[in-house]
Nucleic acid binder design. Sequence first.
DNA 1: TCAAAAGTGTTTCGGATACACCCATGA
DNA 2: TCATGGGTGTATCCGAAACACTTTTGA
Lengths: 248, 248
Amino acid sequence: MAKRELPFQSRQEFHEEGHRVFLPHLSVDCVIFGFHNDALKVLLLKWKQGPWCLPGGFIKHRESIDQSANRILKERTGLDSIFLEQFYAFGDPAREKGKRVKGAWIGKRFITIGYYALVEYSQVFPQPDLLSSECRWWDVDEVPELIYDHKEIMNKALYTLRLSLNDHPVGYNLLPEKFTMPQLQKLYETILGEPLDRRNFQKQMLSLNLLIRLKERKTGGAHKAPFLYKFDKKRYSSALQTGLRISF
Amino acid sequence: MAKRELPFQSRQEFHEEGHRVFLPHLSVDCVIFGFHNDALKVLLLKWKQGPWCLPGGFIKHRESIDQSANRILKERTGLDSIFLEQFYAFGDPAREKGKRVKGAWIGKRFITIGYYALVEYSQVFPQPDLLSSECRWWDVDEVPELIYDHKEIMNKALYTLRLSLNDHPVGYNLLPEKFTMPQLQKLYETILGEPLDRRNFQKQMLSLNLLIRLKERKTGGAHKAPFLYKFDKKRYSSALQTGLRISF
DNA sequence: TCAAAAGTGTTTCGGATACACCCATGA
DNA sequence: TCATGGGTGTATCCGAAACACTTTTGA
């Protein structure tokens, strides 16, 4: 796993000299969603002797915002090229209420650009960075108090994700390669926050023609062995771009 | 109409000293939509001896991004408190390809935050600013070549507006206070870019309970006089917030 | 009097919803 | 053998889409 490449020797230096590497007044925060044990999770970071917050970072001088977000995501999760989408920029001058950090660069007001990511839980090995002591998954229903407006940012990400369900498929990045229909349904149910009819859900999903049913079944669990599916990558990607209409 | 309050004496000074007033590396661009003569319009600005571009501006040190966008909008249109929504941040380091302006502040790379606005055409008196020679409406289908990535920004705004039609009512800010059903339909048709059935459209709209039919009719035109409607402001606002589902 | 626009109502069809039965598996 | 979860099919209903006739008005 890649360690964060901070070109600084100390936190102090990073705070005051960051402007040489990063754009001033601008940050990127990532709401990283995962799915595990039938629950939607979000990856959070804990500052040393401080509160929990969203994994974030800054924009290098010659980097696009997308690249920054990808880099930040990679630093925290080790993952590359997963689903990552910008959803909103937060720019209230009072958003960092209670900010204590001082420094010519870091002490200033920051406007943050929010991205949300969908990643496969099992592939992630959470990595704290030099400024943080812990990095782990939280159930979205149980996230602790977050710093600044990060709770608001997370909620907006969740809201955006929910809305996008009506136009875009979800699952490719959140589920393992092979998964069962009940798993997929649980995913939708947790994102939407409401139960769905098992039979109607299956019909809808299959009618989208994005799923390939495998010969194998998921064994090991109690009860009847469910089929395994995988996504038809090609159709899935084109559905992501073109959009589709599903109503829940 | 408010003139742009540039606290600078010259363009030169503005370019080099802007950092005292505005955040560096950050701008706001507004895609201002209007509706006139059955066509969707967008308000564009022409630089002195330069290309056309979106009306934009910068973020003051103690101003929220929303406030900046509102201020910029007011400067160009004279309008206050109209529908204005952030839709995306554009941050490719190469987005300002061919940028010629020099200066310690303005010459740097800029990340721009896009807003789109819906305004009532007849109430707008386009105002060029100190840096521009012209400000006028263009039919969205006939916009000229735009500077940098402004065409892309406009297209993304249009796309966002289109998507939002499925969840939110439109018209309050784009139409005059009193309007006819055919006018409202034309508005939807131009935004969507496709014709709609007259009778079904009316049924759908009325079923939303956002319209109040007035006693008067629109006289003067040839043919049968259509009813005039106005929006039920209260229900309209709550529908804007809560969201609703219309399918086109 | 006629063409063009506007107002209104009915039929039809498809997709979403609700719902029931059978099968497999481990306890 | 039974409780639990998974697979599949059918009836129903509601809302969208398709569609036709009448009315008004200026030319």
